[in-house]
Amino acid sequence: MNQPAGINTLKQLLFEEESKRYQELHEKIKDVEQKMEESLEAQKLPNAEINALMDQMMEVMPERLGPTITKTLKVQIKESRDDVVQALFPIIGQMIKKYVQQEMAVLTEKIDKQFEAALSFDHLLLRIKAFFTGVKYSELVLRGTNEPQIQEIFLIDDESGILLASYSRHKSIDQDMVAGMLTAIKAFVEDAFESGDQSLETINYDLYQIYIQNFNRFYISVVMSGVMDASFKSKLNDTILQFVKDVTIKSDQPDQSELTKKISQYFDKM
């Protein structure tokens, strides 16, 4: 805005001192502003350094502190085992539950597939087989999912527990000692439950089953994997009876290799 020259001269005369002080104040404010900016800039530097240090620490930490942390954790777990078990139990329980559910789902799926294919030629054959053999159709379908397989056979003297002959798909443990322990377990169960003339017939463990067929002076023990259904049991019994009928078994020092050969002949085809 343009003002008359007289007014400006008057202003200069009246406010000369104020104008000077205003100018000084303005300079001071500018000064303070500049100093603040400089200070902020200066603050930025240490932050960057700290960030760099933090990054470095994060990088080195697993290597440097890892063993110490693991050691400490081990000691802590050892000293408060109950607490750890209590804390882990629900988690593991859930995991097992989940696993079982998953496995059940897989089995259901397998069975579903079998039923879905029920009209296929194979299943038509199964139905015909079921009709003629008297074995349930569902049993035949289930058999397809987990077929029984003979893993080992032991022919054992009933009294002494001495192994007379054996047959095995994969020899792993001392068979003489297994025969002895089986006889001891059998004797223990029969004695503990005062079963009189009755004898132990089966032992189940995990996915395996030990089927025992007793005779006068000896017994035959068959270790199997898979699910033993009624028809397989019947077939197994028939084979065992046929074997005992055909082969002479002398309890007192039998010819082990000859007997083992015979067992293979009879049970290999099963």
Binding site: I173, M177, G180, M181, A184, F188
Partner: peptide, 17 residues
């Protein structure tokens, strides 16, 4: 020995060869 001595306390007998 091959079998654990625990069998002795479990079923009262342990077999060795």
């Amino acid at each position: 020995q091959k079998f654990s001595d625990q069998y002795l306390t479990t079923i009262g007998v342990k077999i060795d060869k």
